[in-house]
Design a binder for these strands. Sequence first.
DNA 1: TTGACATAGTGTCCATATGACACTATCTTG
DNA 2: CAAGATAGTGTCATATGGACACTATGTCAA
Lengths: 221, 221
Amino acid sequence: MYSYRYPHPAVTTDIVIFTIRDGQLKLLLIKRGGEPHQGRWALPGGFVEMDEDLETSARRELEEETGVSGVYLEQLYTFGRPDRDPRERVITVAYYALIPSDQVRLQAATDAEAVGWFAFEELPPLAFDHDAIVAMAHQRLVAKLDYSTIAFQFLPREFTLSELQDVYEIILRAEVDKRNFRKQVLALGKLVETKKMKRDGAHRPARLYRVKSPGKVDIIK
Amino acid sequence: MYSYRYPHPAVTTDIVIFTIRDGQLKLLLIKRGGEPHQGRWALPGGFVEMDEDLETSARRELEEETGVSGVYLEQLYTFGRPDRDPRERVITVAYYALIPSDQVRLQAATDAEAVGWFAFEELPPLAFDHDAIVAMAHQRLVAKLDYSTIAFQFLPREFTLSELQDVYEIILRAEVDKRNFRKQVLALGKLVETKKMKRDGAHRPARLYRVKSPGKVDIIK
DNA sequence: TTGACATAGTGTCCATATGACACTATCTTG
DNA sequence: CAAGATAGTGTCATATGGACACTATGTCAA
């Protein structure tokens, strides 16, 4: 038992884990095993341990569910409405993570709970206030596409310009002009040509590019 | 006494309260009465009560220290390094607030602690990790000047374009071209002319403007 | 009264960025 | 070797941003 002179809230981290697969923006959900909201889908997350940093806690949850580490992770917002969890006061520091499409492998689910990727456009009802968290994460993602190089974080080490364009079109839910897109993205000076080509079908192969400083997300414009 | 099966951190809100006075960006600090960091200056803040929302907590602290309410307040970031407070684990949800220059009146200090406005450029050493919080708040403020109408929040209900330009120059620490500035700010369509003029010295009076929807901060561009 | 002073207010031009738009190139497969 | 599929490429018109200097209108003091 841990006792305090004043009441203390519980603090958790929850993570919105995005990836792009099958031409869709997807995010990872976990089916809740216990009450409240038993059987509902929820964001992965858990209690912050007393000796770990908030980001460390988020990365731990991320790795437990997906097995990936070293991916892009950013603090999103802290949600703390007093009634957001019926059991006790729980304040959650929400993060969002972006996983390259080639690293998507689900871990054996932690507590034998169901876990799965859901298309952002077709989410099931979510537990707690997780729909608000997801909405804010998506909004942030859309905004950052415009003024940062965050889109690169969805792609493997080498990728084609068409694949990069797909990332934009999927997240923005809008078509992008191919010529203008290439002009602008190359003008950033953040990409380097490789000598390799990607061939995957009955058509002209595409040149593969690499990010000059992978992992780094720059503010542009 | 309040007891829990697992250890719980304390949760506070801290606020970076900005205003502009005497041609300088200033922020409000409070001299700490007790340990740790006794006698050091710190951001106003305090524990989140169990039945209040995070933003409510921040507004409460804000009002206790300055007497103002209804001003611009935005969640900034949550700081939670395990060692940021030597007493116990304290996670703080930081906010920042902008106070119109004509509403700057200090409240009788809560606990008879010293309280004062400091120029951002000449801050004393701060307690805890408050220097990191202040740095992030300033960074956010500078960024938002560029893509939002946040600057209006520093001004009284009616103001001149020169006063608005001053806000930009002070925060950006850079000169702004008067003609381009007026062209752009009027093109936003967020301001309306009043019929009043401000006269305050031996020179041509300046037209007073009002914000069309005060309180609202729009994303521009 | 008038001239000195201080701040308000105003327009043009050039360079750059943005956005619309259509055809050729290169590969695989039947 | 023709059909099909995706890769790759340039121009022009318009909008935007930034540099730049002078006139307007008030107060106050001589």
